[in-house]
Design a protein around this nucleic acid. Sequence first.
DNA 1: CACGTCACCTGCGTGC
DNA 2: TGCACGCAGGTGACGT
Length: 286
Amino acid sequence: MPELPEVETIARTLRPELVGKTILEADVRWARTLAMPSAKKFREQIQGQVIQSVGRRAKFLNIQLTPLREPQGRAYHLLIHLRMSGDLVIKDGKIKAEKHDRLILTLAPFPSPHGRGVGVKETYLVFNDTRKFGRVWLTDNIEKVLGKLGPEPLSDDFTPQWLYNALVSRHRQLKPLLLDQTFIAGLGNIYTDEALHTAKLHPLKSSNSVTKRQAERLHDAIREVLREGIRRNGASIDRVYRGGDFQNHFRVYGRTGEKCPVCGTKIKRIVVGQRSTHFCPNCQRK
DNA sequence: CACGTCACCTGCGTGC
DNA sequence: TGCACGCAGGTGACGT
């Protein structure tokens, strides 16, 4: 479901709710949600951990837990990838597990490894994932999970020059290349189509045929659409409504047959690498 | 290395 | 109403 702006929005929403809380227990309701470790070890290791921070790398949520040993000890990280249909919500009071809840963490409102006190209000972090594609890792070595990712498109090391060099050093169609998380990390099907349209580049154009000027345009377009997505709190499609409204501002994604907002030409849909791809045949020439 | 295909899953809208 | 089909914001493992 989510791409970089949606995951960023979730991280920002969860952060003030989670930081400082203690994880009392884990209810693993679908074992394969855990990429590592086993459900048994997961429950043992996460119990009593205090949440230090809530971050994002690419489409991964990165929840840092108590350092093992002060001050240099390694810290566990809870890494969560929502894939197509995952969602994270905070609940409190008397909750009952819903149909597609895959993992439920019980939280205490302050550092209290031994848990429950009288009158202490517990909250829950619920991972709901209809299609079961989402995955959760608990590890003290995040490089093992995140190590192959390309640069963050909103970071300083993503520059026009870097993008130009990276594009021309490969022979790939632009759309699949931008979806490749080892190339750039965080773009998905929506924001890739939006960025290519904004940059006026055809999704099937070969990366090594891009000029320096076009690479600059693409660089700026990628940042622009991601920032707009974040500003609008992401896009809300499906039944999972998260309050974002970027879906009302798509230029081409999901607008097959409608008019291009720039030139009025009918937007075309093709399939590239099994993914729906939307573009303006007039603005985006090969 | 680049690209195509399938697998992993569930649910929803469409058309017969 | 039932049913088949296509589609969905992602990724990884294959084969050529």
